[in-house]
Simulated scan of single mutants.
Amino acid sequence: MTTPPFDPATDRDIAIVSAQLGRPARNVIGIAARCVCGAPTVVATAPRLDDGTPFPTLYYLSHPAATAALSYLEATQVMNEFNELLENDDDLRAHYADAHAAYLADRESIAEVPEIAGISAGGMPSRVKCLHALGAHALAAGPGVNPIGDLALERANWSPSVCECLDYSVG
């Protein structure tokens, strides 16, 4: 199996992600997207944690400004709007199902974990549950792969091309 393209995580990356999250980063296997300044924005996390716990969220949003922007969207009920779009748009629903399949393929290329087989993230393939996970997938996979993640990033008051990082004076 081949793994999805992402940068290996350096010790400095892990220190930055830990600072971003406010806790030690765990089981990071790579950096799937970066801020324009180079700081991690999305981490790739092992499908099975070191303690044996299955972890379906391969792409995890770590950037505080991105997380805050998507949290704001969730608080303003944008997920209801996106769920309605899914319900009423056959093409969007098919594209979202393709995003689910792509997510599963990426994760399964790293490891197959029977307990989470068929489970992706963010509510895929049939509903919108977590904009953080969908935005992380969109950032990691690039535009056009996850249509709901793309919509969320378009609506968010945040852009990966504008640095809003804190001073990560670590390592």
Rank of each mutant, 00 (worst) to 15 (best):
A105E: 15
E108F: 11
A68Q: 15
D106K: 09
L85R: 15
A66G: 15
E154S: 03
D167F: 00
D150Y: 05
L166R: 14
A121I: 04
D11A: 14
M124C: 10
L21T: 03
E154D: 14
R23Y: 10
C37V: 04
C163Y: 09
R12Y: 00
V113L: 11
Y60A: 07
R23M: 10
I148R: 05
L21A: 08
A94H: 03
E112P: 00
A44G: 04
T76M: 12
T57S: 11
P4D: 06
T10P: 02
F6K: 04
E112M: 12
I110P: 03
S169C: 01
G22L: 10
G118W: 05
V170T: 11
L104A: 07
P64F: 11
L131P: 07
P8L: 07
S159H: 13
G123V: 01
A75K: 15
Y96A: 04
D90K: 05
Y72H: 11
N80W: 02
A138N: 13
A97F: 06
F82I: 06
A32H: 04
A97C: 09
T41M: 13
R23F: 08
S161N: 14
F6E: 02
R155P: 02
P24T: 07
A121N: 02
A102F: 06
V42N: 09
E87G: 06
G149V: 07
V170R: 10
E84Y: 08
R23E: 09
P147Q: 13
D50G: 14
M79G: 01
M1G: 03
S71I: 03
H132M: 14
P8V: 02
A15F: 02
R107T: 04
L49F: 08
S159L: 03
A65M: 11
P56D: 12
A69R: 06
R155W: 08
G38V: 05
